[in-house]
């Protein structure tokens, strides 16, 4: 049964079209095979850096610590997709100069941002899956799967990625350029304070508080637990869902305020060109 696209609500149409545009923008600059290689090379290099660092010190390619590092890093590329949403604003405003037509077209601008971010999210999921499969078959990492926990974690990740997209886009409205600094800087912050490549207990006490208050630390641990790498975190999953949804509502509020302010001050479509 074919779906009548025009009968869908405007926000959904905008979301789907932006998802499709995100896929096209990211992938059609080269041949499909080369694009697949591109998708794999970047995350593979980042994990190889960690493996070589581990090998230089321990002289081994096995161990619980490596498993911890490997899975955490594979997961982080998905979280990073939320931060990358900053590029949507930079591209729409500075490069493609399409921010005004997109804004006035039916459906909210938020639908567009979420559509573009979802494309990035799907690419990241693909890269992570490739990394985990490679870890299982090549490095013989002892990975298992707890399906209900895994599905719950992926849904939670989607919520957290949306929160990150809303918050970082709120900042991006007010910076003329330099999306790369926001992506790099914010990723660095999350990489340090999310227990991605080392447990939060490695940090000094005053920094550990930040890491333990950070929902992504617990999310990363849930992901590890869903793959049988470690025991499930102490936080109950339903409480985590509840907290995430409250933060999501708050982020939505912040985004709307930021958008209104950006429109009022004229920064929404301000083009610096330097």
């Amino acid at each position: 049964m074919a779906i009548d696209f025009s009968s869908l609500p405007a926000y959904l149409r905008k979301f789907l079209l932006s998802l499709w545009a995100g896929w096209k923008i990211t992938s059609n600059w080269t041949e499909p095979l080369l694009f697949m290689v591109y998708l794999i090379v970047k995350p593979l290099s980042s994990v190889l850096i960690l493996i070589v660092m581990f090998y230089v010190i321990t002289g081994s390619f096995t161990g619980e610590q490596l498993l911890f590092i490997y899975v955490g890093n594979a997961f982080f590329s998905i979280v990073r997709a939320g931060v990358s949403s900053v590029w949507v604003i930079t591209e729409d405003r500075e490069w493609f100069e399409t921010i005004k037509p997109i804004f006035i077209s039916p459906g909210s601008y938020l639908s567009h941002i979420l559509g573009r971010t979802s494309a990035e999210f799907l690419f990241s999921v693909f890269s992570s899956v490739i990394l985990l499969v490679a870890g299982f078959f090549v490095l013989k990492l002892p990975l298992g799967i707890n399906l209900p926990l895994f599905i719950s974690t992926i849904i939670l990740t989607l919520i957290i990625t949306t929160i990150l997209a809303l918050l970082f886009c709120s900042v991006a409205f007010f910076v003329g350029h330099g999306g790369e600094f926001i992506v790099e800087g914010a990723s660095g912050f999350l990489y340090l304070f999310s227990g991605v490549i080392f447990p939060a207990s490695t940090l000094p006490t005053f920094l550990r508080i930040i890491a333990e208050a950070n929902p992504i630390t617990h999310l990363t641990n849930f992901f590890r637990a869903s793959l049988g790498v470690s025991a499930a975190p102490q936080v109950e999953l339903w409480k985590f869902y509840l907290i995430s949804l409250i933060i999501l509502a708050l982020s939505y509020f912040i985004f709307n305020r930021a958008l209104k302010l950006a429109l009022k001050t004229g920064m929404f479509d301000q083009k610096l060109g330097h």
């Binding site: 800087g185 990723s187 660095g188 912050f189 991605v196």
Partner: peptide, 12 residues
Amino acid sequence: LPVLAVAAYIYL
């Protein structure tokens, strides 16, 4: 913020 990525590798 870029310093933080460096700090992550130091802690690793």
